[in-house]
Simulated assay, not measured.
Amino acid sequence: MEMDRDLLAQQLAAGIRHFVQCSFDDADLSRLDLQDCVFERCTFNETILYACKLARSSWQRCRGMSADFESADLVDAHFQGCDLNNSKWRRTKLASASFRSCKLTGAAFEEVSHLGAVFDECLLVGADMRGFSFRKATLNQLDFSDADLSGCDFREAVLEGCSLRDAVLKLTRFEAADLRGADLGGLKLTDVRAFKGAVISHAQAAAILGEMGLLVA
């Protein structure tokens, strides 16, 4: 079912908060109150959700390629199995939000408030995650390949099945982090400083030195 802003507003006025297989593609839904809404197998491709109230909303197997969530309130929102490649999240409120089994390749998380936000089994390839704090978190199956992790805090975090291959690690902190379950391929000599105090395996150390042209005898 195709739904534009006016039709959605009518549905909301009638008390409807559960939407299944609806298309909101290219719609401008800026500033709408969508708190507690459930979206199931809906599409939001290139949809504008600027400053929407989306607290406690639930997104199940939705597609939102290049969707723009700028300045939206997504506190305690939950995304499960969604395709959100190249989506924009600038200045969103993501406190206690969760992303599980989601595709977020190329997503831009700029200046977001994210205390308690959870990412689990997600693709974050090429994503802009600058300034995120994952301190003391256990990270499971996150692919940060080619992501910009500048200024991120991974201190005391445990990375299980994660990839940091070719990620940007300027001013990133890993003190006391357990990186034995992470792919550290593609590191440059300047990146090695970021891993000061982190725990890595003998195999990882040998691989890092090998990529730098050194032979471990």
Rank of each mutant, 00 (worst) to 15 (best):
A9V: 11
H114S: 15
R31N: 05
C82Q: 09
S58V: 13
C152K: 08
A51Y: 01
L34A: 06
T138P: 00
C82F: 13
V118I: 13
G64T: 08
D83M: 11
F119P: 08
L8A: 07
L214G: 00
R135G: 02
R5M: 04
D146V: 00
S66Y: 14
M65W: 03
D148V: 07
A13G: 00
E211N: 03
D128K: 03
G186Y: 04
G64M: 13
D68H: 06
L49T: 05
L124Q: 10
F39D: 11
A13S: 15
A77V: 05
G15W: 09
E110Q: 13
C82V: 08
A176G: 00
G186F: 10
K196M: 01
L32T: 02
I208F: 04
D33I: 01
C22T: 01
A77Y: 01
A107E: 04
S150G: 15
A203D: 15
G131P: 09
A182G: 09
L179V: 12
Q21P: 00
K196Y: 04
V20H: 11
E46S: 14
A217C: 01
R91C: 13
C162V: 06
C152W: 02
G151L: 06
V118F: 00
F44S: 11
C22K: 04
C37V: 06
S133A: 10
M212P: 00
A194G: 05
G186S: 07
G15S: 05
V168K: 12
T47F: 07
T43P: 09
G64F: 13
A147K: 03
L34E: 09
S98I: 01
E175M: 03
E70H: 10
D6F: 09
F134Y: 14
E110R: 14
R135Y: 02
F154C: 11
A198Y: 04
S57P: 01
G151N: 03
N140A: 03
D143I: 03
H18G: 00
V125N: 12
N85T: 10
L187E: 00
R56N: 11
M129K: 01
C102S: 08
G131D: 10
D6N: 13
A206L: 04
F119I: 04
G197A: 04
L34M: 14
A176E: 12
F99M: 03
I48S: 12
A51S: 15
F174I: 08
V112N: 14
D28A: 06
S87K: 06
C62H: 11
V216G: 01
R61A: 15
G210C: 08
G186D: 07
H78L: 02
R63C: 10
L189Q: 15
A177I: 07
L179R: 05
A194R: 14
R17F: 07
S57C: 13
N86P: 01
D25I: 05
